[in-house]
Design a protein around this nucleic acid. Sequence first.
RNA 1: CGGGACGUGGCGCAGCUUGGUAGCGCGCAGCGUUCGGGACGCUGAGGUCGCGGGUUCAAAUCCCGCCGUCCCGACCA
Length: 571
Amino acid sequence: MRMSELFAHTLREPPGDEEAPSARLLAQGAFVRKLMSGVFTMLPLGLRVLRKVEGIVREEMDAKGAQEVRMPAILPSEPWKISGRWQAYAAENLMFVLHDRHDRELGLGPTHEEVVTPLVDADVSSYRDLPLNLYHIQWKYRDEARPRSGLIRAREFLMKDAYTFDRDLDGLRVSYGKMVDAYRRIFTRCGLDFRVVEADPGLIGGDVNHEFMAPAEVGEDLFVHCTSCDYAANVEAAEAHWPKAPAQEEPKPMEVVPTPGRATIEAVADLLQVPEHRVLKCLVYKVKDELVAVLLPGDREVSENKLARLFAPEEVGMLTDADFEKAGLAKGYIGPQGLEGVTVIADHSIRTGANWVAGANEPDAHVTGVNLDRDFAVDRWEDLSGVKEGDVCPRCHEGTLMLGRSIEVGHTFQLGTRYSDPLEATFVDEDGSERPFLMGCYGIGVSRIISAVVEQHLDEKGIAWPRAIAPYDVVLIPTNMDDEQVVAVAERLYGELTEAGIEVVIDDRDERAGVKFTDAELIGYPVAVVVGKRGIEAGALEVRFRATGDQREVPLNDAAAALPGLVAEAP
RNA sequence: CGGGACGUGGCGCAGCUUGGUAGCGCGCAGCGUUCGGGACGCUGAGGUCGCGGGUUCAAAUCCCGCCGUCCCGACCA
């Protein structure tokens, strides 16, 4: 490609309307242009990167026996109403809803379970056709509440989604394992540093699921990882650790102490001179018309996510002041002793405590010496505690958890029968019985990968693409277009490299060398080959590696033969 | 949806407090010089100051409403 003809007008300064480093560089380097919030045009350079990522995804999916299809972006609403997600997405206002000429309600696809499930149900009737793995790479549409950071959270984005169909759970696990393996290969090939973490299933549903997280400052997701084992989880889903073998204390008698105006854990701990973890946190929520009390040590926060999941699809709400009054609860002074008509759910971490300080269930008073079983009962034990940095690892119990920010580039789910049940997608098994498919679904944010890679591969000069997804392998820079010899050498090399199958751009613009160098570094070609008068006189070319900054001299007469090998060495 | 910032030639910005001639840099067009790290000189084109209303003799500037973009939060395969 000739730079003089390429539709790639780099910007002297970063755009004023982007904050995220990757969004600024992708605009400045002429990879994308924003049309509106969360919607982007891919320019020639950006499209080449996107196609490279797509190619890697396609190769690795095909290698695992997945078959590519292409499902439409426009969807009928009916299957979504049956699965319940039309309502769910509508509630979040996430679906772009359309109406056709017959006033039929349609949607722009935010994901495709409701398309693929009926598709497979219609075409697959027998266990003999299983397992089956279908995928497609399609633009997805979600009217996000807050598009963010360029391609990282866009309203139109390219996604690879795969769907597996199996006879039984063992089969699903095998299919799932293959996809996780493919994902590891894909992200590795794209040059991403990533972690596989346990995650929250969100609106998709299902049980076992993993997120593929690329650590980056601008990432939207918080995840924890262990300092000594390979445990990693999204903070929304991370398990909390609690000591299994408690040190028991002799129970003391309960004693009411006045604590006027001390309605917070901190204030009570301070007044009574006890550590916060000895104060029993008792929070009351409402689920439909029922009241639910949640117990935790005073130094822990409730994970609203974990709590919500316990009662889903019912909503978990906070109490209003009127609710407190109606239930006769003293806000800020609630204890689990003698609570009536309230379901008490305790976090595992309070199992081992004794002689708690708890609210007295009357204003301005607390009780000391409160003990499990003797003074209060627990209806359910659950993991409800939020995880924080420095917590003991729930797996190895040795390391501590570190907090990090990351971009979710992939998400895999073992759905089971979440969609095949309501959509009645079944096959006939070997014994003649009709069974629902066991499904898995697997998503990769193809366009999002571009941003994630840039976030991990940038410096003060611009982008440094990993060669696997770089828009071109090499930029050839003739330093002076007026020098016939320089131009002749560069043109000859351009022909030879192209012939050798190298993807090369020749910067044949009538610009000064400095402009060409700066653009080359901004755009981030892995290799730059400088053809200049100086070099020609010395019989050598200059080869620069963007990622490492290394420079090498290559003999001019041997350049065409040597360069392909050098390019292959670029990271 | 709540909070904040911003909106002025293609791009990046100043001007607004204190109302009165729309400005700077880059880019773009022409001519000349220059040519290995974003050159220089001269000439030139290009702006409903986001939109609508109001105040005023007069509004980019003050007031009200709306729209758009970004950031924080809520939310989010």
